[in-house]
Amino acid sequence: MDTLRELAAVLRDVTGEDERWAAAVTPESRLEDDLRLESVEVAALGEALRARWGVDLPAYLAGLDLDELIDLSVGDLARLVSG
């Protein structure tokens, strides 16, 4: 499974959305504007990324400015977990 599909599956799990929703997730999908993740879902995503890839999402997010947080995309997460 490629990273994008794995991330879409993780996002589906933390949001409770269905397979159709996950299939529409692209690298350009922004967590806030497009996927409408809420803070509790971002927290769950952080836990899932740590468990699956050992990534510290809260530390990564702390290093971003407001515009970067608003524009954070699935592609950004893919680079983070692949890097």
Rank of each mutant, 00 (worst) to 15 (best):
M1C: 04
D2Y: 03
T3C: 10
T3D: 10
L4G: 06
R5C: 03
E6S: 14
E6C: 08
L7A: 12
V10F: 05
L11K: 09
R12D: 04
R12Y: 06
D13P: 01
D13C: 03
T15D: 11
T15S: 12
T15N: 08
G16C: 08
G16E: 08
E19T: 12
R20E: 15
R20Q: 12
R20A: 14
R20D: 15
W21T: 07
A22L: 05
A23D: 15
A24W: 03
V25G: 08
V25W: 10
V25P: 11
V25I: 15
V25H: 11
V25K: 05
P27L: 10
E28T: 08
S29R: 05
S29C: 04
S29I: 01
S29P: 04
S29K: 06
S29N: 04
R30L: 03
R30S: 11
L31I: 07
E32N: 08
E32A: 13
D33S: 15
D33G: 13
D33L: 10
D33T: 11
D33A: 15
D34S: 12
L35I: 11
R36H: 14
L37Y: 09
S39P: 06
S39E: 14
V40T: 11
V40S: 13
V40D: 14
V40H: 10
V40P: 01
E41G: 02
E41H: 05
V42Q: 05
A43F: 12
A43V: 15
A44W: 05
A44D: 14
L45T: 11
L45E: 10
L45M: 03
G46Q: 12
G46P: 10
E47W: 09
E47H: 12
A48T: 02
A48F: 00
A48L: 00
L49P: 10
R50A: 15
W53C: 00
G54Q: 00
G54H: 08
V55G: 01
D56N: 15
D56M: 02
L57F: 06
L57R: 13
L57N: 01
L57G: 12
L57I: 02
P58R: 09
Y60P: 01
Y60A: 14
L61I: 00
L61R: 13
A62H: 03
A62R: 14
G63P: 10
G63R: 09
G63W: 00
G63C: 00
D65Y: 05
L66E: 15
L66M: 10
L66D: 15
D67H: 08
E68M: 05
E68Y: 03
I70L: 13
I70W: 11
D71V: 02
D71Y: 09
D71L: 13
D71T: 08
L72P: 04
L72C: 11
S73F: 06
S73L: 02
S73Q: 05
V74P: 00
D76Y: 01
D76G: 05
L77C: 00
A78V: 09
R79L: 13
R79H: 09
L80V: 14
L80W: 00
L80R: 06
L80C: 07
L80Y: 00
V81W: 05
V81P: 10
V81M: 08
S82T: 15
S82Q: 14
S82L: 08
S82M: 04
G83L: 04
G83S: 04
